[in-house]
């Protein structure tokens, strides 16, 4: 991990399993909502995407991700933890580049909080991509 929100390269199944154990000792959690974003092999002008190279304004990512987490936790009182991890560097088609996990007492606020976190990540996280064909 480059910092607590950014990882170099893809978010591997091993990393996902490690991230999902964090907070698992909180017995007040009744729901764990996860979103995983993956790189698609889209085709443009006859060329197929082999990978995406992500870059980020790393200092600002920390500030914005902290703000997103504060916003989601205050908007959804049943949400207990919010985790955001994004890739920087090269991520191949089929690999994961974004991991969001929201734990909550019950499912409703957890799933809505996870969706809200995703939309805020798309809007506010200073990350850019470049397709590699």
């Amino acid at each position: 991990m480059k910092n607590r929100f950014l990882v170099g390269g893809p978010i591997t199944p091993l990393l996902i399993s490690e991230l999902m154990t964090l907070g698992s000792d909180d017995n007040g959690t009744g729901a764990v909502s996860v979103f995983i974003g993956k790189v698609r092999d889209d085709e443009t002008d006859g060329k197929r995407v082999k990978a995406i190279e992500y870059s980020a304004y790393e200092d600002m990512v920390i500030k914005e991700a902290d703000e997103i987490i504060r916003t989601v936790r205050s908007a959804f009182s049943d949400v207990r933890t919010v985790m955001i991890v994004h890739s920087v560097g090269i991520v191949k088609a089929g690999e994961a580049s974004l991991f969001i996990m929201v734990t909550s007492g019950h499912r409703d606020q957890g799933t809505r909080g996870c969706r809200h976190t995703l939309e805020m990540v798309k809007e506010k996280l200073p990350v850019w991509k470049k397709e590699i064909y």
């Binding site: 974004l98 990540v121 798309k122 996280l125 200073p126 990350v127 850019w128 991509k129």
Partner: peptide, 10 residues
Amino acid sequence: IAILPPFQGG
């Protein structure tokens, strides 16, 4: 000062 084109994360 940072020059920030539209964000493309996710």
